[in-house]
């Protein structure tokens, strides 16, 4: 396992769409010096905001635990659900 792979996390955001969700989250990631590798964002069924980000933590200034807490807190403030999970969960679950 390379170090790079070890340090990638998936940030997922689910909730009712509103102004400023992406701005708020990317601001937290920028402050943490975590690099966004990929973003995919859709509005499901016309109203549910769904965003998935692949984030590289290898150069990050804060720990995964701290970042996860910051994102969760921001989610509560914005009224959306923000989860930060280690990338392995998704890779492992669906493939061998």
């Amino acid at each position: 396992m390379t170090e790079k792979k070890e340090n990638r996390i998936i940030v997922s955001v689910l909730g009712v769409d509103r102004v400023g969700i992406i701005a708020a989250i990317t601001a937290i990631l920028a402050k943490a010096e975590a690099n966004i590798l990929d973003i995919s964002q859709t509005i499901m069924q016309g109203q549910i905001f769904t965003m998935i980000m692949v984030v590289d933590m290898s150069g990050a200034a804060v720990s995964f635990d701290t970042l996860r807490k910051d994102l969760t807190d921001k989610g509560q403030e914005l009224g959306v659900q923000i989860m930060a999970q280690h990338e392995d969960v998704f890779k492992f679950m669906h493939r061998i």
Partner: peptide, 18 residues
């Protein structure tokens, strides 16, 4: 290399959350 399928991510989240 960092491609992770969006539908798979949502499926995982749904399984845990709901």
């Amino acid at each position: 290399m960092y491609h992770v399928d969006t539908s798979e991510i949502l499926e995982t989240i749904r399984m845990v959350q709901m």
